[in-house]
C-alpha cells in the first residue's frame, strides 16, 4: 500500500502544481498511514520533492519522454503505481494532468474523481469533495474501487513544506510503439506572458473597455502585478483579444489567488469560470452590476480613471515592498 503522486515537470523543472500535488499527497498518505511515493519524468533535481513530504522519489530518465505524450506518460504512471502497490494515485489539473488522469484510471481499473478540492472526507468509504455544476456547487463522490485516482483541482490545497529524508530511485518503464500513436509537431506558446493557468493573479477586462485599443492600461496593470491577462467571452468573440484569454463556463477556468474584473458585468456564465478564485475585485461604473454580488472588494467607478491610478499607486507600493 502506498500513495503515488505524479509530479509534473516542464523542461526538467518542477511545475508549482507538482509541489501542491506532493503536499496534498503527503497529507493523504498520513491519513492512510502509509508513505508517499512521487513519480517524475526527467526531473533535474528530483530531491526537491522531499521538501514537500515525498519519502520515495521515482525518477524516470528517458529521452523519448522529453515532451508530454498522454498515452506514454499514462503508461509510466500505471507501471509505477503497480510496482509501488499504490492504492491512491494523485494527478494535478494542468492541461496535461486532465489529459492523463482518465487514461491512468482506466488502465488501473481505478475510480477517478476529478476537480477534487480537499483531502478525502473519509477514507473508508473513500469520499471526495469535488467541484460540480461549473463551480456553482460541490458534490461528494465515493470511489468504490480498490485503487483510486484523485484529480486535484488547481490551487485547491496549497503548498506546504514538510521536509523528509527521501530515497531517490531510478525507474525504468517498459515503453512500446503503441504508446506513441500520437506525435507532437509543434508547440505554440502565447508569447512570453504569464499563462492564465499558472498565474497567481489574473487581470481581466470586458466589454466595458469599449475597444481593443484601450487594453494598454490592462496590460500595464497585469505587468505591475506579474499577472496574466484575461477577458470576457464577447471580448474574444469581437476579436478584441485572443480566444485563449476567454474566461468562463465555455472558456478557461481561473483558480487564482486574485482575480480583478474590469468593465465585466458578471454574467452567470462568466462567474462560473472564476468562482474558484480566492479573492475577487470588481471595477465597474454600474453599482447594480451582478459582479458586485460575487466580489470581495469593489470600486464603483470609471475604469478609464481608476485603472491608470491603480497602476501608478501599485508601482509605488511594489517599490516600497520590494
Amino acid at each position: 500500500m502506498s500513495v503515488l503522486v505524479f509530479a509534473e515537470t516542464s523542461e526538467g523543472i518542477y511545475k508549482k502544481i507538482a509541489f501542491e500535488a506532493t503536499s496534498y499527497g503527503a497529507k493523504v498518505a498520513e491519513m492512510l498511514q502509509t508513505n508517499l511515493v512521487a513519480l517524475s519524468i526527467n526531473a533535474t533535481d528530483a530531491n526537491q520533492l522531499s521538501t514537500y513530504g515525498a519519502s520515495k522519489i521515482l525518477n524516470v530518465k528517458n529521452e523519448k519522454l522529453n515532451s508530454f505524450n498522454a498515452k506514454a506518460f499514462a503508461d509510466v504512471v500505471c507501471q509505477a503505481a503497480k510496482s509501488e502497490a499504490a492504492d491512491v494515485v494523485i494527478i494535478d489539473s494542468s492541461s496535461n494532468g486532465l489529459y492523463l488522469a482518465p487514461l491512468v484510471a482506466y488502465n488501473l481499473n481505478a475510480g477517478l474523481a476529478s476537480n477534487v478540492v480537499s483531502i478525502p472526507v473519509t477514507t473508508a468509504p473513500f469520499v471526495l469533495k469535488r467541484k460540480a455544476f461549473s463551480n456553482k456547487a460541490f458534490c461528494f463522490t465515493t470511489l468504490t474501487t480498490s485503487v483510486r485516482v484523485i484529480g486535484l483541482a488547481k490551487n485547491a490545497y496549497g503548498i506546504f513544506e514538510n521536509k523528509v529524508v527521501a530515497t531517490i530511485a531510478d525507474f525504468t518503464p517498459t515503453l512500446s510503439d503503441a504508446d506513441f500513436g500520437i506525435s507532437s509537431k509543434e508547440v505554440i506558446k502565447t508569447s512570453g506572458k504569464v499563462s492564465i493557468a499558472d498565474a497567481d493573479i489574473v487581470v481581466s477586462a470586458g466589454r466595458g473597455l469599449k475597444g481593443p485599443e484601450n487594453w494598454g492600461m490592462i496590460e500595464d496593470l497585469a505587468q505591475v502585478l506579474g499577472a496574466a491577462t484575461a477577458c470576457s467571452k464577447p471580448v474574444a468573440d469581437l476579436d478584441w483579444r485572443d480566444h485563449a484569454e476567454h474566461v468562463g463556463q465555455t472558456g478557461k477556468q481561473v483558480a487564482a489567488n486574485l482575480y480583478i474584473a474590469i468593465g465585466i458585468s458578471g454574467a452567470i456564465q462568466h462567474l462560473a469560470g472564476i468562482n474558484s478564485s480566492k479573492v475577487k475585485v470588481v471595477i465597474n461604473t454600474d453599482p447594480e452590476a451582478p459582479f458586485f454580488k460575487a466580489a470581495d472588494y469593489g470600486i464603483v467607478g470609471d475604469a478609464f480613471e481608476v485603472v491608470p491610478k491603480l497602476v501608478e499607486k501599485l508601482k509605488v507600493f511594489k517599490q516600497n515592498n520590494a
Binding site: A137, C139, F140, T144, F292, D296, Y297, I299
Partner: peptide, 21 residues
C-alpha cells in the same frame, strides 16, 4: 465505480467591500 452521495452549495458570500474611486 463511483457513486455521488450528496451535494453542497458554496457558503453564502459576505458582502462586497466597496472602496471609493
Amino acid at each position: 465505480n463511483s457513486t455521488t452521495v450528496s451535494f453542497e452549495k458554496p457558503p453564502v458570500k459576505s458582502a462586497c467591500k466597496l472602496v471609493s474611486p
